Structures are given as C-alpha cells and as structure tokens.
Simulated scan of single mutants.
Amino acid sequence: MAPLNEEQLENIRNERKIQIMRAALKTFAENGIKLTKISLIAKEAGISHGLVYHYFKSKEEVLYESLEWAMELNETHEYLNELSKMSVSPLEKVRQFTKYALSSSKSENSHIFRVIQHLENTDGIPSHILDFTRNVGIMYVEFFIPIFIEGQEAGEFIQGDPEEIVGLFLTIISGVMADDPDFWHENMDRKIEIFMRMITTR
C-alpha cells in the first residue's frame, strides 16, 4: 500500500478532530462542564485518552473549539436568513422559529444550547468562552428585536420593552431545548400555541 500523502494525512487529522469535537459537545451537554472529563470525551469518541491531547491542550480548549466549530456549521444561521425574507407576519415568523427550534431539539444542534445553559450556571469559566456564548445570544436578540417591534406595532405582540420580551422568549426556548424535549414533541402545535400566548395579544 502506497504511503499517504500530506493532503490525505491532513484530511484524516481533520476528521479525527471533528470526531472529538462532536463527542465533546454531546458529553458536555449531557454531563455539564464540571463533570465532563477528557476521559469521558475520549470514550464517547471511541479513541484513547491520550489522543485527545494530541489535538487539544486542555478541556477548556476542547470546549471552546467545539462550540466555535458547531456554531460555524449551525444551520440556524441559514434558517434565520430565510425567515427574515419570508412574506409572513411577525407572529408567524416567531411561531415558525419556535417550531423549528423545538423540532431540532433532538438533533446535534441542541447540544449547543444545552452547553450554553451549563456555562451560564458554572463558575470559573474562562472569559473568552463566556464572551463567545454571549455573542451567540446577542445575535439572536438582535435578530428578533425588529420582528417583535413590528409585531407590537401591528398589535400582535404584548406591549413592553421589546428587548426584555425577546430575552424572555429566547430564555424559555433555550431552556426547553436544554431539557428533555420529549414532552414538546407530543402534540407540538398545540403546545406551541399555548406557549405563544405568553407573548401575544390573542
């Protein structure tokens, strides 16, 4: 068998690193930040403990790079772009996003939200990791504030500080995604309608 060339070796290294990051997100999401050890990540990835350190210097580095990688791949960015262009009411945009978010709560995307929830409740997290997760939150808030303002002007959403209402809306959504989603997957449309009553005038 011919030896692998540099490009093939680089592809193998990249695939292995992605394998570790995917396993890390799942492990952090399920166990929390403090309880996750490199050994648990290695076990989830199906590799040796030492091999993780070949790609990452520390658990904190695995955490940061995994979140960064996942956000770059996160299809939610594309979905929000599509949602902004839809010719539907603000209320319908929020309803559709809610269904999208809860429908994906069993997918890999939900690991990001669960990890962020853990980070918000864990002391001693490096500042660059907290800054990254805050920026993720700001992105969602900045996207939804104009939609909620438009909805308030149209009489669809309750009156009040739109940033505060958006914050409440996103906190509940992320909390549901971070929890066991099975409850929401049964009779989802009905439950979404009940949820929407918190922010609508109907």
Results as ranks from 00 to 15, higher is better:
2 A>W: 13
6 E>C: 04
9 L>M: 12
12 I>W: 06
21 M>K: 10
24 A>S: 03
36 T>I: 06
38 I>H: 05
38 I>K: 04
39 S>D: 15
42 A>Y: 01
53 Y>G: 03
53 Y>A: 07
57 K>V: 11
57 K>H: 12
59 K>E: 04
63 L>N: 01
63 L>Y: 03
68 E>W: 11
70 A>F: 07
72 E>V: 11
80 L>S: 09
82 E>I: 12
87 S>K: 15
93 K>I: 07
93 K>S: 05
93 K>C: 06
109 N>H: 12
116 I>P: 04
117 Q>S: 15
118 H>I: 05
118 H>W: 12
127 S>H: 14
131 D>E: 15
131 D>I: 09
136 V>H: 09
137 G>L: 02
139 M>C: 09
141 V>N: 11
145 I>D: 04
146 P>A: 07
149 I>K: 15
149 I>R: 15
150 E>Y: 02
154 A>D: 12
157 F>S: 05
160 G>K: 07
161 D>S: 13
162 P>V: 02
162 P>E: 03
165 I>C: 02
167 G>W: 02
170 L>C: 08
175 G>F: 00
175 G>D: 04
175 G>V: 02
175 G>T: 05
177 M>Y: 00
182 D>T: 14
186 E>W: 12
187 N>S: 08
193 E>W: 00
194 I>G: 07
194 I>R: 11
197 R>Q: 15
